[in-house]
Design a protein around this nucleic acid. Structure first.
Lengths: 206, 206
DNA sequence: GTCTATAGCCTGATAGAC
DNA sequence: GTCTATCAGGCTATAGAC
């Protein structure tokens, strides 16, 4: 009988997962702030009040989606960067994986990177993965400098910002204008490799 | 007495302008799809049904905001490009004006370039200014090639896309992370000149 | 954990008097 | 052109029975 609490907790966790998945579905179809608890309840086959046993408010649900999104995105990028040769190769692999993930998770990406819901403010701890992300890129750039792929200036704040501008620009246009095409297809995402190729001229190794 | 219809029309036009201005205010405060006719009516000091004398539906109001936004943005860019020397200088002046306008009109920019309201589909004729915009850039690039500032490859579709990626990337990050800073301040918008400087290495004149 | 019931809002839109 | 009145529905969130 001692395992009954465990089973309960597991069931509860499964329900929470299901709610989050359905919520992401709704956001994808109706827009990020088209999310409503009632619609999620409808799809879960449950009445709206029942959801309040799992989330205290709509804002809490947003926060959980945000938190999971940040975490998943970070892990995808980290995984993609650990295999390949350090430096520029790893950096490109990571950003490539980021782009792919963002287009496979459009609604969540918009929540993470566009802030389309002014009333939703992510909790401070939700930002931790985003700091780690910058660290990953900084490290890859430092490796690239050490390997002679880039000049020393590539370890500045500016370099990180320029790289994130490349990926943000490509993704923003793809999400807005070609929302149904995966990474690598269409007019915009193929620009990314071309833009990354300019890094050695922006930060020439001496 | 023959001018009474004129005065009526003028009054009507003024009211329409006022509605649009208030709607943009609401979008700025509550998010693009936080716009509601009731809130506009409240601010106009009028009951919601009265607005239906001016717009048939919320969608029509969105469309008018979209149409005006496209038009105003195009004219701002065109004006900025006609003064200076043709070629790269004009191109940079135009994009600079575009960035400035977008940050001064954040909500409208989001409506124009991010499509955060899936249920809103702009009418086809609203897209005309956007085609003209591309033409302006194409012309400037052609001038730059003729002046020997860039290589012939700068007249390709790719060049236009890369330039729009630069401005989109910078603006997306500024709008999401530094929504209160004007063009030229903060961490992101100062990257733009730096990015434009890379054009001659991307498309080297021969 | 689920439900019904409900409070207390909000919304877009229409009909018809003035 | 403005209003009142109203429809018909949406929403978040809570209280309390089962």
């Amino acid at each position: 009988m001692a395992d009954i609490p465990d089973r309960r907790r597991r069931r509860r966790q499964e329900t929470i997962d299901e709610i989050v998945d359905l919520a992401v579905e709704v956001m994808t179809e109706e827009g990020v702030n088209g999310l409503s608890l009632s619609e999620v309840a409808r799809r879960l086959g449950v009445k709206p009040p029942s959801l309040y046993k799992y989330f205290d408010s709509l804002n809490d649900l947003f926060d959980e989606i945000f938190r999971r999104g940040q975490h998943e995105h970070l892990e995808v990028v980290r995984a993609a960067m650990t295999g390949p040769e350090p430096g520029l190769t790893a950096l490109r692999a990571g950003l490539d994986a980021s782009g792919r993930w963002c287009l496979e998770n459009r609604a969540v990406s918009q929540l993470l990177f566009w802030r389309p819901v002014p009333s939703f403010v992510p909790s401070p701890e939700s930002f931790e993965p985003s700091r780690e992300m910058v660290d990953l890129q900084r490290h890859a750039l430092a490796d690239a400098v050490a390997a002679g792929e880039l000049g020393a200036a590539a370890t500045t704040e500016e370099a990180v910002l320029i790289i994130s501008t490349f990926i943000t620009g490509v993704l923003s246009q793809a999400l807005a204008n070609e929302p149904d095409l995966p990474w690598g297809q269409g007019r915009f995402t193929p620009l990314f490799p071309r833009l990354m190729d300019t890094l050695p001229t922006l930060y020439p190794p001496r």
